[in-house]
Design a binder for these strands. Sequence first.
DNA 1: CGACGGCTTGAGGTAAGTCAATCCACGTGG
DNA 2: CCACGTGGATTGACTTACCTCAAGCCGTCG
Lengths: 253, 253
Amino acid sequence: MANPWTMKMEQFTRFSEEERQTLDGLISKRQQQHQPGEDIIKEGEHSPDCHVVLSGLACRYKLLPDGGRQIMAFLVPGDLCDAEIFILKEMDHSVAALGPATTALVSGHEMRELLSGQGRIMQALWWGTLTDLAVLRERIVDHGRRDAYVRLAHLLYEMLVRYRMVGMTTDETLEFPITQADLGDATGMTPMHVSRMLQKLRDEKLITLKSKSLTILDPERLKEVAGFNPNYLHLDRAHDQRDGIADRAGDLI
Amino acid sequence: MANPWTMKMEQFTRFSEEERQTLDGLISKRQQQHQPGEDIIKEGEHSPDCHVVLSGLACRYKLLPDGGRQIMAFLVPGDLCDAEIFILKEMDHSVAALGPATTALVSGHEMRELLSGQGRIMQALWWGTLTDLAVLRERIVDHGRRDAYVRLAHLLYEMLVRYRMVGMTTDETLEFPITQADLGDATGMTPMHVSRMLQKLRDEKLITLKSKSLTILDPERLKEVAGFNPNYLHLDRAHDQRDGIADRAGDLI
DNA sequence: CGACGGCTTGAGGTAAGTCAATCCACGTGG
DNA sequence: CCACGTGGATTGACTTACCTCAAGCCGTCG
């Protein structure tokens, strides 16, 4: 079974066997385990290596002068923690593991090789970055124009799609090692309000969430209440013909 | 005097004369004028060309089912409207001119050439995209953790820095062809509340804003109230030695 | 001059925050 | 095996930042 990095990028393009082996090779050399809450890379740091999430869940966040924390993105397996290291001097934010997580280390040199290639891997890396941008834009729409209930619904549905994309779930249940305080820091609500909104989602029989396990009971209706439009995830194999291989997340979008 | 695209990228790296001429050549072939309010590229479209803003002000936005609009980013001269076209099938959002604006068209083919090069231009394009990501993240912090007053202050200060970066102002006055409704759509407030918060900024002698002209009266204090930390703009010439050329935005950061 | 788009001001309403108590699940040590 | 402590979730009462609705104003352009 493919590693999640390859699997994610193959939502965009199909690789050759050789390309798959290149990627497999890169992420199997050096790996790291991370404890829940542990920083993978910190604001202000520069690392010689790029981190690719292989398992678990992580987040990008910033700490504020007043002690508050804003989570700006969740990272699922297959996501790059710090594409910036290959070109920027230092991180402008931190990345931390939420549950136990493992990452693979890819050296800056190797990343540069991939990026200056002419082939599909270079394009797939661009695709990944461009969809990261799109996800952030959607988060801004969430904050600016959707109320707390819809915002939460939208976030949870997006997580379902992204988990599917990398084969982290085949049904509607996700490992979700996240506290309500984390969810609050991500959505800009207080933990108390997160609790109330989750209650409402449960009352509406849309989800269950307990002991770090999230189940989407009614994906269709959740998508509906979230006003979810999947176009921003660009899961449409822009440059390839469809080829009989079933899309992993295709039935959700 | 350098074009704004080159000028922006030279915040990151210094180009050779040859590289400057390449860039100049690319943006001088085909240009477009845009009326205030006109769409430069629309959600769902795919264009064969990439648009680079040369003058004026534009924004990325999404329309919502309920008729609302969320502005996700402002584009100043030197910014790329649609880096995605070279790789994604269609735009997941629209870009519109706010005041009168002009853009240069760069073909997808030319973009691909630049991006698959080994040199500084390829790196500078990556830098641009990575800082776009960082700006979006900062916008999320704005929405999630800063109140209306601070959010507005932060946005205005960022615009000052970005205008400086591309030589659009040398003092503290900016052309700002933006209505309060636009500001509301960007910050997630109603126009009425924008009006009140601007009043407060005026009362505090931090800014003046009338007839499409914004003046920052007290940059130091505005930066202070905004809690502005410029690290996310990555204006630090990561890969070059400083070389006696004054930084255009350096005195603000 | 009148009309129109944009800005301002005010009064009242509401979603979400604050503060505080309680509860529950789970792990740890006696 | 139970007592206890701790971190997270829940619930409720009260407060507040921002929204809604509505009226009035002001500059500009035909």
